[in-house]
Amino acid sequence: MIVLFGIFLLTLLVITALAIVRNDSLYAAVILNGIFSLLMAASFFLLDAADVALTEAAIGAGISTVLFLGALALTGELEKSPTKHRLLGTAVVAIPTLLIIFAFFDIPQFGASDAPVHQHVGPWYIEKTPEFIDIPNAVTAVLGSFRGYDTLGEVFVVFTAGIGVLFLLSARPLARRNEPFVARDPHKGLRHYLVPRVVGRFLIPFIFLFGLYVQFHGEYGPGGGFQAGAIVAASLILYSLLEGERRCLVVIPSGALRWLVAGGALLYGGVGVVGMLLGGNFLDYNVLASDPVKGQQMGIILIELGVGLTVTGVLLSVYHAFAGRGKL
């Protein structure tokens, strides 16, 4: 039954991807991209990746759709020029596809536990997580502690990308450098539409609460800073869509957002430095408390909080950067 469902989802994924590429309307392509992400999240869940499914659903289907729509509002909704070199492009793409499909006949069988992937550090993480860290979710343990350096790097990539968007979009366009700056319709939002307003007001607190639950329950179930950051940002973006940008900026002013972006990354790096000051290595949480296991748990909670703050800050600032920019 699961096999059939898997094949069904994968087929839908391919159909959706083809529809995205063939569609002339960018608006339709973006909405289809949201559907694509949701199907992808369901496939991840079938493949035992609950944490990844949660992330993909929150980010791919939620935030990325909003960001693409925000960009489309500034750039236009139709693809104007036709596809160039259609035949050549198809050939360039078809040959590698066939080659990759051919190459995969040699890959270890799907789900085989003796595949090379499962011979390296994976089993060791599963075996040692209860002993060293003693939290149920091995994904959080690997993310926060065993591979904390990787995650620190990823947080800084997110941070840098957020700063980059702010730099790009806070500059005034050349063509109207001399005009006074007028933000696009800042008061209105969707407040005059009854159904979105009522449903949205009802949903926003629950989405926010769910985000906090995902943040602080990440050690026990699927979740953690990355997912929670996306969900909290989604609830605030929904608030901003309904009530207008200005009221959302009253709740969290853009100055506070910048502090969130930098503070989260600083908190993560700071936990590492505190570990060094207490006599351990960088990002070694064992020394944070008298009991090494308690120290590990404390470290993971702190760095997950840092991740959550940075991700919320970056996604919200990026959204405000797109939404606050007037169309030329």
Binding site: D51, G60, I126, A141, V142, L143
Partner: peptide, 12 residues
């Protein structure tokens, strides 16, 4: 869990 961790951060 390892591929899941790598991809989770890669999505963000």
């Amino acid at each position: 869990p390892l591929p899941q961790v790598l991809i989770l951060t890669a999505i963000v």
